[in-house]
Write a protein that binds this DNA or RNA. Structure first.
Length: 423
RNA sequence: CGGAGUGUAGUGUAUCGGUAACACGCUGCGUUCGGGACGCAGAGAUACUGGGUUCAAUUCCCAGCACUCCGACCA
């Protein structure tokens, strides 16, 4: 990609109202643009980052045996009445009415929708387990959108739903998804804590959250320094918790006696167990091995992928800008030519660019006719992990490489570079 | 929804009871080219909206709207 063609340009100053780091840097770098409070466009750079995150999620979720679909965002009232959530979840739903007076809701989740789908096609125990997921927009009427892209009224989410013939099979899959989520967040580069939490309008059963420690987060978690055991502060305060957690955990781990730390955190994913309740409400049944009608065990599993991008920026940045991980970066390498008016430098840069592209490496080439300083500053802001410089100091075989995280610059042979970027 | 703050050119700011200035960005020409270069010449604003006070309002007052923050809320 030629940076001279990249939409839009970077900005030297952040919007005056922006306070959270992800808001400032993502806007300045040209990753996102705000339409209104809580509503953002993913610009080319931002869309690439979210796409990278989504690909990792897709790979790991596919491994659990789930199948990808795409469900509608406009839902009829009737489906939501079946579980009572048309009324119960009223405050988070964007409801609308068409010219004939029919009621609709913009999707804020898909349990009812996927269960309607499943009940039409599920016949036998041999059709189970069944796991379906999609990436799509969620609409939530948040009382207060905030923190840049972290809490919007419209955002991208991967949601997975699974149905199982018995409790044991469900529990096995739930654990498998938990493992898959940990793998996903590890691949992205996060250090993640799994916490128990309340389910809100979603479930009265147990659920788990995946939390990333960050100053800009809106949750508070307690986690053990030694064994990693973690709890959301909400759980301590929630009166309906059936199995009271020893408040001692606030200072001393109930698992291993280790030191417990309190931190602000961002919830990047969560998983829910619903038991058979939803299937009963929606009359989702199958014929079990004994020839009788039975209700599947059901769960749902979400990752807010646009939020993951914002959370990454909160966690990984410095005074100059964003520092993407290899897994999340919009491009693998940022290629910069210095003294680009020199024909010879331009030619060598073009040659390297072509070579990298033909090696399957994603390159952002800063081909703009601007000063070196401006290019370097933009490179630091955009935060691609590797920066290459071609100049009069380099030659056909060797170029300059600098990692975004490091200060030092090294000269590297082009072949070695390609090897390094390919791994 | 309660509380606070802010609304002036694309962006960030300044100004002031007498119709708006600066920087960046943008356009043209030239010179530059290793950490946000420089010169010259340009374009770009009904000062968020609506009321009120006043001879006169971008400025003071009121209301509304928008955005941000705190709280409530939050798969």
């Amino acid at each position: 990609m030629l940076q001279s063609k990249l939409f839009p340009k970077t900005s030297r100053s952040a919007p005056k109202d922006a306070e959270s780091i992800n808001h400032k840097y993502l806007v300045r770098g040209g990753f996102i643009d705000q339409l209104m409070s809580g509503s953002w466009t993913l610009l080319p750079l931002g869309y690439r980052v979210v796409d990278k995150i989504n690909k990792i999620i897709r790979e790991e979720i596919d491994k659990t045996g789930a199948q990808e679909v795409l469900m509608p965002l406009l839902h009829p009232k009737s489906v939501w009445n079946e579980t009572g959530r048309w009324d119960k979840a009223d405050s988070v739903m964007y409801k609308l009415m068409d010219v004939r007076g029919k009621d609709y809701v913009l999707s804020f989740t898909h349990e009812e929708i996927v269960l309607d789908l499943i009940r039409k096609h599920l016949k036998s125990y041999s059709d189970l387990p069944l796991a379906l997921y999609h990436f799509s927009t969620k609409f939530r009427n948040e009382p207060r959108a905030r923190s840049g892209i972290l809490r919007g009224r419209e955002f991208i989410m991967k949601d997975l739903y699974s149905a199982h013939a018995d409790k044991k099979d469900f529990e096995n899959y739930y654990e498998r998804v938990k493992e898959a989520y940990l793998k996903i967040f590890e691949r992205i580069g996060f250090e993640t804590f799994v916490t128990e939490s309340g389910g809100g309008v979603f479930t009265d059963n147990f659920s788990h959250e995946f939390q990333v420690v960050a100053d800009g987060g809106e949750d508070t978690i307690y986690h053990c320094k030694k064994c990693g055991w973690a709890f959301n502060e909400e759980v301590f305060d929630a009166k309906e918790v059936k199995e009271p957690i020893d408040t001692k955990f606030k200072t001393e781990c109930i698992k291993c006696g280790g030191e417990v730390i309190k931190d602000r955190s961002i919830e990047v994913g969560n998983i829910f167990s619903f038991g058979q309740s939803y299937c009963k409400m929606m009359n989702v049944t199958f014929t079990d091995t004994e020839g009788k009608n039975n209700f599947p065990y059901f769960g749902s599993y979400g990752i807010g992928t646009s939020r993951v991008m914002g959370a990454w920026v909160e966690v990984s940045h410095d005074q100059k800008g964003i520092i993407w991980s290899k897994a999340t970066a919009p491009f693998a390498v940022h290629l910069i030519e210095v003294a680009s008016d020199k024909q010879e430098v331009r030619k060598r840069t073009q040659k390297l660019y072509d070579k990298l592209l033909s090696s399957g490496i994603e390159v952002l080439w800063d081909d703009r006719q601007v000063s070196a300083g401006e290019k370097f500053n933009d490179a630091d802001l955009i935060g691609i992990p590797y920066r290459l410089v071609v100049s009069e100091k380099t030659n056909d075989n060797e170029v300059e490489l600098k990692e975004r995280l490091k200060e030092e610059i090294e000269m590297i042979k082009v072949e070695d570079l390609i090897k390094r970027l390919s791994t």
